[in-house]
Amino acid sequence: MLLIKNLHANVAEEGRKILKGVDLTVGKGEVHAIMGPNGSGKSTLANVIAGRETYEVVEGDVLLNNESLLELEAEERAHQGVFLAFQYPVEIPGVSNAYFLRTALNANRKAQGLAEMDAAQFMTHIREKVKLLGLPQEMLTRSVNEGFSGGEKKRNEIFQMAVLEPALCVLDETDSGLDIDALQTVAHGVNSLRSPDRAFVVVTHYQRLLNFIVPDFVHVMMDGRIVQTGGRELALELEDKGYGWIEQQVAAQV
């Protein structure tokens, strides 16, 4: 489903190199975890997939279902089924959560040639999902993420994901700043969305999240490249030994 080939990307304004040849293949229904030390390029990779313009792709390609995403605008990628759960969800004062989400949902439906939903249909559509994420009803009428706690913001991200039903879900450090209860709620939401047609790329610094969202593959990123790939046990090993031993291995190969 997702194919990343030799991806190189810079910070657009300063030209600083961040991704230096990432290769990654994600199949339908799979959950891939991307781990790595701070500054290794994990979040950049997530943002590049989603089309953030602060990064400039200088080499390589990102393909979704055999079609390149790189020429597409962020919203067009969303219409193709790309969803990025933000590490720091953005506050938008003055725009209600429900209005925002209905606008987004209808924009996606329109792009996919489906009829738009009116307010009543929309409420029916989201009722179940509100329950799934344990969102208080009033969170729908509040401005998008404004004044939300860290946990509420992350739950809201997963809630939006549940409503938009994307094909490829990229989670950027969704576990950061969450206590264990919030983490479980979020993981429960993600797990309920797992399906044979949907893939997940879970970017995380800690293995803790992977106790709840069990990955099929674990990749380690370092200095802008994926340097190690394994199964779930790799995450446990990293938890145990840290990243140092991989760094040494990489250094030894050079």
Binding site: A78, F83, F86, F100, L101
Partner: peptide
């Protein structure tokens, strides 16, 4: 970017933000 990432076209996203202001 946040709104566009959710699928809202740029024009509409800009308009919504201006409106909210």
């Amino acid at each position: 970017f946040y709104m566009r990432q959710r699928g809202v076209p740029r024009d509409a996203a800009e308009a919504v933000l201006v409106y909210a202001f």
